[in-house]
Amino acid sequence: MRHDWIADILAVIDAGSFARAAEARNVTQSAFTRRIDAIEAALRGPLFDRRRKPVALLPAARSLEPGLRRALQVQTSLLQEAAELAAGGGSITLACQHAISATVSPALVRALAEAGFEPVRIRSGNRDDCLVMLLSGAADLAVSYARAGGAPETAAGFEERAIGGDRLIPVAHPALWRRPDGRLPVVAYPPEVFFGALVGELWRELPEGVVPHRRAETALTLAAYRYALDGLAVAWLPLALVAEDLAAGRLRRPDDAGPDLPLDIRLIRLGGAGRETARRGWEVILGASASPGGSERIP
């Protein structure tokens, strides 16, 4: 069925009258009514009960609505993709957790650019923000941390694959030490963000006599990173973010700050039919992570 036919039919369903549907479709009511008449003639039967207020699909046609909505979504995505390609596009948008934007995204941009995607747009947010961007269509793919080797941490309707690994580790300025009373100055994450729950668990494994003392709280890993560099407190950060600082002696791993936590880096997409851009980008990133040297390109 033609894209404009589906859009016209759904406009009537959503608006409840031909007049409001015509306004939504930016045509006169008489022209819109002729379009609906032409659709029904082509389909060889009526679709709407015009006697009802609001106008509604006839009982025999009601089962079509879910399929029409899915078809419109698929067709709209294909038309958008075709327009991008015709305009010399090929852009793709990734929603990444803040720390991933600073560490992993350069390898992702490189792999995608080499495959012909330009520009590669990186949008940063907390883990839940990234999933919302994926659901809303503001991003084609999402990249997020997860517990290493664990079950999928997204709800039904998403698909995720591990593309690399990292570790969540405690780091501090070399001059920062635990206080004589056992209190360890720490940067906390809010409990509702992904790292907040993980760090809360790690605090329960601190050595006996070590008590976390919250000196700062932030949802931004990059802010926590700065607090650690400035000597304010111990921060739990991805190793990829702090590896160079550890090697250069700008940060150290405190012996009394408990264990590390292995992490997966996971690529996430919406399940089912989606934009061709998302499908191609998914394959490019998975191929880069599985290729020889892939663990170097995507940490």
Rank of each mutant, 00 (worst) to 15 (best):
R121F: 14
N26V: 13
R280F: 07
I39F: 02
A95P: 02
T103E: 00
A38Q: 12
L222Q: 13
A111G: 04
S101V: 14
A139D: 03
H213N: 12
A151C: 04
E153S: 08
E192P: 08
I100Y: 07
T33L: 08
G287N: 09
W5A: 10
V74K: 08
V234K: 00
N126W: 10
L168Q: 04
P46Y: 02
G249F: 08
E192K: 14
S136G: 13
T28N: 11
D140I: 07
L47D: 00
A228Y: 09
G125T: 06
S144V: 15
P191I: 11
G271E: 07
S77H: 12
L57E: 02
A257H: 05
V284Y: 03
N26I: 11
L85H: 09
A42S: 13
R147L: 14
L263N: 01
R110K: 14
A155K: 07
S105D: 04
L168D: 01
L202H: 04
S124N: 06
G258T: 00
R127I: 06
L220S: 15
P46R: 01
R52A: 15
E217Q: 11
I6Y: 00
E84P: 00
R279A: 15
A83L: 14
E208Y: 10
E81F: 14
R51G: 15
L79V: 13
H173L: 03
Q97C: 11
P152E: 00
P54M: 03
I13A: 08
D260C: 04
L261N: 03
Q80K: 13
D230K: 05
L270P: 02
S144E: 11
L43V: 06
A224H: 01
S289H: 11
P59L: 06
L267P: 05
R279K: 14
R127K: 11
V199S: 03
V74R: 12
V109M: 09
T33V: 11
E283A: 15
S30D: 10
S101D: 11
E160Y: 06
E40Y: 01
A102H: 10
A188F: 05
L85I: 09
V109C: 09
E81C: 09
I163C: 05
D256L: 08
R121I: 15
L141Y: 05
D264H: 05
S101M: 13
G274H: 05
H213Q: 13
R62L: 07
A71I: 01
P174M: 06
P259Q: 09
D49A: 14
L202R: 13
F194W: 13
I285G: 01
C130H: 00
F195Q: 10
L220G: 05
Y145D: 00
E160F: 06
L72I: 10
R25P: 09
I298A: 03
A216E: 06
R250M: 02
A216M: 09
S101G: 15
A162M: 09
A257Q: 08
R69N: 06
D264L: 03
L198R: 13
G149H: 02
I36Q: 01
V12G: 06
G294E: 02
L222C: 10
R252G: 05
G88E: 12
D255W: 11
G116I: 09
G116Y: 07
G149P: 01
V171S: 09
G125I: 06
P59S: 05
L232P: 02
W177Y: 08
S289Y: 08
G272K: 07
R70W: 10
A102R: 12
A197Q: 10
E160N: 11
L220C: 12
A224E: 00
P180M: 04
